[in-house]
Write a protein that binds this DNA or RNA. Sequence first.
DNA 1: CCAAGTCGGTTCATTATTTGAACCGACGGT
DNA 2: ACCGTCGGTTCAAATAATGAACCGACTTGG
Lengths: 248, 248
Amino acid sequence: MSTVGKAASLLELFTLREPEIGLSDLARKAGLDKATTRRLLMALAAHRLIEQEPHSRRYRLGAGLSRLARIRDAHFPFVRLAAPVIRELSLETGETVHLSEFSAGALLTVHVELSAKANRVNVDVGQVLPLHGTASGIAFLAASRLEAVSAYLEKPLQAFTPHTMTRPDDLVKAIALAVSRGYSRGAQGYEEGVHSIGAAILGADGNPIGALAVASPVSRIDDTVAASQGEAASRAARLVSARLTGEA
Amino acid sequence: MSTVGKAASLLELFTLREPEIGLSDLARKAGLDKATTRRLLMALAAHRLIEQEPHSRRYRLGAGLSRLARIRDAHFPFVRLAAPVIRELSLETGETVHLSEFSAGALLTVHVELSAKANRVNVDVGQVLPLHGTASGIAFLAASRLEAVSAYLEKPLQAFTPHTMTRPDDLVKAIALAVSRGYSRGAQGYEEGVHSIGAAILGADGNPIGALAVASPVSRIDDTVAASQGEAASRAARLVSARLTGEA
DNA sequence: CCAAGTCGGTTCATTATTTGAACCGACGGT
DNA sequence: ACCGTCGGTTCAAATAATGAACCGACTTGG
C-alpha cells in the first residue's frame, strides 16, 4: 500500500466509539510499525489532520478535517440540504432513516436519524454499504446508467448474510422491480433482522449521487407498511434531489 | 517533505473559491510532478478523501472528509456548541465574529458569522491566525500557561503589517493587559484597517483550546465601543467554555 | 483545416524516502 | 524491585516515490 494510503488508514481507525487512540494501539490496529505510525502521525499533525492530546499523549482527529469538510459542504451541500428531509421522513415513518453518498464504488453513510422507538435499527455514520446488499444500493443501481450496473455486476459479489443476493440475475430482477416502483425493498441482505426501503437521490445531471433508506426491524413490516414507507421514501428522495439541483 | 505531507498539501489547495481543480492545475499549484500528483490523488481517492467529477474529470474534496469531521465533532463539539453563541455575539455587536481553534502552533479559523453591515470585515473559514499578530492569539496566549508563552516568544515573530508586534517585550505587555481585562484588543496587527477584540475559550482542564474575536473596521471603533465589545466577547467566551465542560 | 497548445493520464529506469528491529527512559501495577 | 507497556528515537537496509518523455483527445485560432 502507498504511504498515503497507510496514513489515510490511520485516520479511519478513529470512530465514534473510540475517538482517541494511543500510539502503540494505533500501530497495532493499523498493522504498522510503531516508528512508521509515529512518522505518519507527525506528517498528518503538521497539516492539522491529527492532533495529540498534550496530557494523555493520545491522538485524535484534527481541526483541519473540520475545515476541509466545511469547504466541501459549501460546494456540495448534500448532507446540509438532505438532513431536514431525513429527519422529517424519520418522524413520519417512526423508523430509523439514513442517508448515504456514493463514493469509490460503494455508499458511505453520512447522516442518520434514529427512530424514537425502543426496538429500532441502529446505523452508524461512516458505515460503508455495498451496492448489492442493501436497499439503498439497489435503489442506487436502479437509477444508474445501464453500463455502470453491468460493470458492477461483473465483479464477484460478497455475501454478508445467508439472504444476501449474490447472483447477478437476482439483482437484475430486484433492480428492475425498483425501477418500476420508484423505490427498492430489501430484507436482511446486509444485516439480519433488518428490513429496508431505499430510494436514490439524483444530481443535476440525472445520475444518482446517493440514496436514503428507511430501516425497520422485520417484525414491524408487512406489505402495506412497506408500500407506504416506499411512497414516503420516494417522495423524500425526490425532494432532496430537487433541492440539490436548485429547484424548490 | 514526506509523501503524506505532499498529499495533505493537495487537500489544502481546495478552497471555498476554488472547490474543484484539474490535475495539471493541481500539480502546478502544489509544485509537484503531474504523475506524482495523480498517484497521490488516487491514493486519497481510494480512501474517499478526494473525489473525481466523472464528467469534467476535475478533482474535489471527498465524502470521507465529512465522515471524519463528524466523528471529530461528536467527540469534540467545539464548533457545534460555539456556533449559536458566535451568532448571538455577532447580532449583539453588529460586527463580524469568528471562532478559531488552536492547532499546530496557530489558531485555525473554524467558524465565521459575518456582520450584516455593508462595510464589514470579511474572514474566511480556514484562515490560519498567528498567535502574536491577532487579538484572538493574544487572548489565547493570555490564557496559556506561562511556559507555553515563553516558548512561543522565543521563536522569531513574523510581521504581517507595519503594526504587527514582533518584540517579545511588547507582546508580554499586551498579554498582561489582556489578562487583567479578560479580553484582548488589537488593531491592524494582521490586516490593515481591522480592529479586533479577542477572548479565549478554555477546555475542561483550564487550558485554552481556541478563541473568538469581534472584528470591525477601525473607523467604527472608539474606546467606549471597544470596552462594550470586550465585555460581550468575554461573556460569550465564558459561555462557550462552560458549555464545553458540560456546565450550563 | 491544420498547427500549436492544453488537457488527463501512463510508463519505467533512477533516486530518495520509508521502514522496522533494537533501544531509550518513564510510568503503573503487582 | 520487578515486569510489562507506554511514547518516542535511531540508522542501515529495503522499498516505494519520482519525473522526463510520451499518449491520444480536445480547444483554440490563424
